[in-house]
Write a protein that binds this DNA or RNA. Structure first.
Lengths: 271, 271
DNA sequence: CGTACTGTTGATCAAAGTCAATTGAGGTGG
DNA sequence: CCACCTCAATTGACTTTGATCAACAGTACG
């Protein structure tokens, strides 16, 4: 079956060794049975590799050979612009499925570069076909991830076209917080952000210098602090107020839930 | 079969009454046999509707009910930003498949609004499943369209982050020219562009006033003229030079062809 | 004919970019 | 352990692009 999307109740998060981040995200939407969990395990563990910081797992222009799931670490998607500079197009966080539709294109339109030491699972075309054949649920889940990523991509355009520097950084931080929160890598205090100020600026369409000043404004303004590779929330309410952040475009269930779980303090503010 | 992508030789363009634009695009990549052509016909003709200018075929926040193929006319995808303004995220041209992955999401993250009188084919979830079941080739083709749209979406970000006003407009015009050219709606002289200056500006992250001045610069500079709803190329070479335009991100075969057909003068310059 | 867009122009302003230096922190080799 | 190197962060001075504000003109249409 190809297009059988429907809702399913939410299961408690499991903690599989190799795919816990992904499982946590998928639990947002899909009750994965033990067979599917095992199936997912198997497919992810088949081809796991470690990648050093700065190394590409996909190179712009290459023919797509496989898709990837980030098991741990950060990666970012970049494209070389006509002026020779690189543009950061997206961040791929633990649990993210990168490039689900890659096999549909002759060539990759962008690179994926490890931003930290990375553990990635690679899934070839044949394996992906097997996976979707053996578990339509997983295919659905992957597809949903892909659709959510497209929605995030669009939000990045809105961010750059409609917001000023402070708002851009604030909304990027909010987005990352929400996405990391879902996989347990952010809490109400903050999260680790393995990027330079220049990277943050690039993703927001700002120069490094201006990013620096913007970050200072946010810090002295008592909103967020980015220091030593960590984002610390100083006043979450003020942050999402400035960012105009609503998490709905991320497609998470909890962010649009009827009855948000009590412990999700951070998330509750995103509604 | 879900993921069986492969290359196929190119067929001559056919001129089916209802789906000629789409067929023309798909011919870029897939040799569609008569059975598939007929199948496509059938699915597209099942639910065709006419939509007036300004009317939405998809509303942000709605649950996705169907995906759409633009049979004729222009539409644009918009999202409401936190500041209350609308942002144009994409243009949907004749032959475009809108929102292939829509069923994967609970809610639409953006609206699709008719920019001209529109003829659209609607395909529900069940019909889409049938279509992909009866013709994997068509599913592949739709998927490729979807992946190409994602690539275009990324290019819009690069455009805004890396280019100045003149370059943005120039590269948008180049992109639209290439996409319209493939479906026969642009030639070496120009193409119809049913947008206001404000729309063009919005898509490029510019104010209407500045867009006006930018268009004048492009016109007096002898690059392109946008007048009375038409874009006229004054100097194509200078235009794509300024835009830094390379059509490869569009994923068209002819734009990356080894031996570009002789008659594709305009396209040849895009390499 | 008004009414309402759309396009056009001018004057002014501010946000962000650019250029140039300096500081700081982490890592390496002597 | 320290000198040294490199890269990231920081700060300042200055410039520029594009936004903003304010009219006004052309055009379309009921």
């Amino acid at each position: 079956m190809l297009f059988p999307f429907s809702e399913a109740p939410r299961s408690a998060a499991s903690d599989d060794p190799g795919s816990s981040y992904l499982t946590r995200k998928l639990d947002q939407h899909f009750e994965l049975g033990p067979r599917e969990q095992a199936s997912l395990q198997r497919f992810l563990q088949a081809r796991v590799q470690t990648v050093d910081t700065g190394v590409s797992i996909v190179e712009e222009g290459d023919a797509p050979r496989e898709i990837h799931v980030i098991l741990s670490g950060w990666a970012c998607r970049t494209r070389r612009a006509s002026n020779g500079r690189y543009q950061i197009l997206a961040f791929h966080l633990p649990g993210d499925v990168c490039d689900f539709g890659a096999f549909a294109m002759r060539r990759s339109d962008s690179s994926i570069v490890a931003q930290t030491p990375l553990r990635v699972a690679s899934i070839g075309q044949a394996a992906l076909r097997d996976l979707s054949g053996s578990s339509p649920r997983l295919a659905q889940a992957f597809w949903r991830e892909s659709a959510a990523a497209a929605s995030v991509q669009r939000e990045w355009l809105v961010r750059i076209c409609q917001q000023n520097a402070r708002q851009r950084v604030a909304s990027l931080f909010s987005e990352l917080a929400a996405r990391l929160y879902v996989v347990g890598l952010a809490d109400d205090a903050g999260f680790a952000l393995p990027l330079t100020q220049a990277d943050i600026g690039n993703a927001c369409g700002l120069t490094p210098e201006h990013t620096n000043r913007t970050l200072r404004e946010l810090r002295t303004g008592g909103l967020v602090a980015f220091e030593r590779g960590r984002v610390e929330f100083l006043c979450w309410d003020a942050l999402i107020e400035l960012a105009g952040f609503r998490g709905d475009y991320l497609g998470f269930r909890t962010l649009a839930a009827e009855k948000p779980p009590a412990e999700l303090d951070l998330v509750a503010h995103m509604l």
